[in-house]
Amino acid sequence: MKKTWYSYPYLVWMAIFIVVPFLLLLFYSFTASTDQGIVFTLDHVKRLWDPIYLMVLLRSINLALICTIICLIVGYPVSLILASKEYSSNKVLALLFVIPMWINFLLRTYAWMTLLEKDGLVYTILEFLHIPNTQLLYTDQAVVLGMVYNFLPFMVLPIYSVLTKMDKHIIEAAEDLGANYITVLRRIIIPLSLPGVISGITMVFMPAVTTFIISRLLGGGHYILVGNLIEQQFMVVGDWNFGSAISFVLMVVILISMGIMRKYDKEYEGGAIW
């Protein structure tokens, strides 16, 4: 007795709201309406190679990379500590890391606005300590800070979950054989935690590249990343073809890298669907 037909409403829904929009995006990316009607063109995709837009792309990647590296450097020790013997039984601590992940993105970013603005708390403290400061809000640093703040838990949790699943006997064996902590870390813990590191990097880098909220709120109006560019094309400029082309390129890049990452993950985890 097969019940496959129960999924038909979903398949129809998916066709209308996932497949068709995707085809529309494709259509807008590669066509232009001219006097002769709608024609196929690669112009919109080529336009991305214009130095102005290329700069935007590079800046987004650059800031996202910086954010990912900081998250990795700050986050890896956190995962190590959370997974270590003293803390591993403490589930509340792990939960405390999950909660900020679920707080609205906007609120988390906005919270930093209140801290960094002129007359804000950080500003007042710096003034009190007589540390000269000029502008805190609407700078590169503010954008990176906002990204790190928003995405740090995405780095910590995957690494933490790999570390907790790791066979502790291997570490004990290494220690019995005379390895010191640094060697254990370098030869055992870090190599075994690589799948977690990779999914952490994916989970931080992808949203950091595509964000337009953080750069808009903490970077100010003049600050343009790829996400802002897409938003502008659709909401301000009204050039849907170019907007679609950027979105399409972004999507392809991200899905391909996700696919590669997942393949890599699968070798370790086994049960992934991809």
């Binding site: 998916m14 209308i16 709201f17 996932i18 068709v20 929009p21 995707f22 529309l24 995006l25 807008y28 992808m206 949203p207 590249v209 595509t210 337009f212 996400g227 897409i230 938003e231 659709f234 849907w240 907007g243 679609s244 979105s247 399409f248 972004l250 999507m251 991200i254 899905l255 996700m258 669907i273 991809w274």
Partner: peptide, 19 residues
């Protein structure tokens, strides 16, 4: 099914808007 989960929000939003 995984596509909307993995796709960047901004792309999902934009393509639905087009639809």
């Amino acid at each position: 099914t995984y596509l909307p989960v993995l796709n960047p929000d901004i792309v999902t939003g934009v393509s639905l808007m087009l639809l």
